[in-house]
Design a protein around this nucleic acid. Structure first.
Lengths: 352, 352
DNA sequence: TGTTAGCACTCTCACGCGTTGAGTGCTAAC
DNA sequence: GTTAGCACTCAACGCGTGAGAGTGCTAACA
């Protein structure tokens, strides 16, 4: 950032005041307000001059000549990088979060859903939690469970301990599970330790030769295994509090609001939005027009990653208006990320 | 309905015209409009007189003296009972629905989700699908699957063929699944054919005596079985297109819209709203203030039931403004219900 | 007796207009 | 370099006015 020195301390202080005020009030803020509220020991005229400079430099803009100033995307960018104060959460908020997270949870999807709900309720914005993406997961075991004569449950356990299952319906009539046991053992012998794309057609034909299981059962089962692996490897997106968007005056225009809600509903768009926080202990900000999608240029997105270092890293984030309480959101996400990390270790054990 | 004769044919025709027009335009409709658009062979003055009568009887109201009339809840009620024409769906709509439903689906939740999405997209309103409630489901079998040394997957199959599973984490270290097989067999021997509340404590202690499995594994497993049964017996609510609400001019007031969205988000409220369509082949209408929840008095809800007669009946419905295209919605729901019935039989087989 | 043309009346909505107030930029004095 | 003062700008608000849609009522008609 070569521009860091473009602003002297006084300008920074004024910019910070403007943004803090605007975040709180959603109203353009004028020089008098700054002079009065924040004790900078400056008169309004001085502040006016500085504001004119800040405007020329592109940190703030004026909606119209006789209005106060509002921060530009560049202003917010400078704010999150240099000016923002991150005051930690209120004690009661922490308690609330902790209590909610400590209710007995032992499935991952519950955990993520819960986390998403809490973050959105604490911040008042929209939350997104993306599950870790497990690329090319090695299969640990495959189990077949006899449900009834025409249906079988396929269970796949992957390397780090994620489990998926799928019910298959087949035309072949199974009266007991002896065939399934044989098939299950055979599947394990060829699949264990491999990723799905290491399993080749010859292996399958070989398998069929060995145990002479009919096609009507083998194919559906294989397909289900593939489906389970796909589910294991794919990421899921949990989102909560989408309609919180409506609480903020910048979206009082129904048409715009609808458009945004429509977009945020789509999981793949959300996934696109929040992806790309590379390292841990680092927050990624996308502010307003830094976002690729044009309709969302009045939104900011704050994300970070959670999970065991180097392993399954998922993303957690918050979407809100550019005029977002950045400091508060950062601390909320931070707190939740730490809790998530702890819970994940509790559920999976610490095999790092 | 003692009032059925309160309206002669002409009044009915006029009322129908008013409602059809209003459903389409969302504007108060005046006497001239009716006289012109619908060929009733009557002058506007005559219609004005009839409208005055209809107003006095409470079927329509005037927003203010010099505006046209809009239907009251009572008017809509009469409309759905006597006046509404149910023209079947457009051919292309049917094709669209059928194609969407015929993509390979073999899990029930996918089916319901899909149905919900389609209904909401066809009608442009909010759709709700409630899964069948299986009260006191008999357990058909319980299977335990060895996942890794500290985790076991519990699979419960219930009478009609519904399957649920839950992953349990236990402190006891399992190196292979011999113990699980024994436990599984024992569980089956005491649980098969019983509902969950027929299983008593003595049975459990007896079981523990027999197979000498440690508490650290038996208790978590039992709890998981209970959890699975709970999931099997509980209903789930699928809803889609909530924000379609915003498309309708009656909810252009952001505050009201937000309130409604907030309510429709809650699963239990939805469940409350749509419950209570007793018999099959019958539509249940809740119009405006007939609804218990005051904030939703501008909404109507149309529901019907699907599923195999006498057995697992679920509910499918649509929520929209009282000014809803009732005819269209009814035919869409009808069509979808038939498809759902067929699919359910396909998945479960017809063991009725 | 039912229907309809005509008319006066009512009320909303959109438009234009002046006023108000917040906030600015500039200048001159400190 | 800072600040008080002043003229200027512009959105927002309230108000009055006129157009338009729709009504109810009356009187005439079939």
């Amino acid at each position: 950032m070569i521009w860091d020195n473009e602003l002297n301390d006084r300008k920074r202080a004024i910019l910070r005041s403007i943004i803090n005020d605007y975040i709180q009030s959603a109203q353009p803020v004028g020089s008098r307000t700054i002079a009065r509220k924040h004790e900078l020991g400056l008169g309004s005229a001085t502040i006016r001059n500085e504001m004119a400079d800040l405007e020329e430099l592109g940190y703030i803009t004026q909606p119209h000549t006789s209005a106060g100033r509002i921060p530009s995307d560049k202003g917010y960018r400078f704010y999150v990088e240099h000016l923002m104060e991150i005051h930690s959460l209120e004690r009661e908020e922490m308690v609330k979060i902790k209590e909610a997270m400590e209710e007995r949870i032992d499935e991952l999807n519950q955990l993520f859903r819960r986390a998403s709900i809490i973050i959105s309720s604490i911040t008042g914005y929209t939350s997104v939690v993306m599950t870790p993406q497990l690329k090319r997961a090695a299969i640990k075991s495959v189990q077949l469970v006899h449900v009834d004569e025409k249906r079988t449950l396929v269970v796949v356990v992957a390397g780090i301990g994620v489990v998926q299952n799928k019910l298959v319906k087949h035309d072949y009539v199974l009266n007991d599970d002896t065939l399934l046991q044989k098939l299950s053992a055979a599947l394990n012998s060829i699949m264990t330790g491999k990723t799905i794309d290491e399993i080749t057609v010859p292996m399958i034909t070989e398998l069929q030769h060995q145990i002479k299981a009919p096609d009507q059962i083998v194919y559906p089962v294989l397909q289900a295994v593939g489906e389970c692996v796909r589910k294991i490897e794919s990421t899921e997106v949990y989102t909560e509090g989408i309609i919180n968007i409506l609480n903020h005056p910048e979206f009082s225009d129904l048409l715009k609001a609808r458009e945004i809600l429509e977009l945020l509903k789509e999981e793949d768009i959300l996934a696109d939005l929040v992806k790309g926080s590379p390292s841990k202990h680092h927050f990624d900000f996308k502010i307003g027009s830094e976002n690729e999608i044009n309709q969302l240029k009045d939104l900011s997105i704050i994300t970070t990653v959670y999970g065991r270092e180097g392993q399954d890293l998922g993303t957690i984030g918050v979407i809100g208006p550019t005029r977002m309480a950045y400091g508060k959101v950062v601390s909320a996400i931070q707190y939740m990320r730490d809790l998530l990390d702890r819970e994940i270790i509790r559920i999976f054990g610490d095999n790092s």
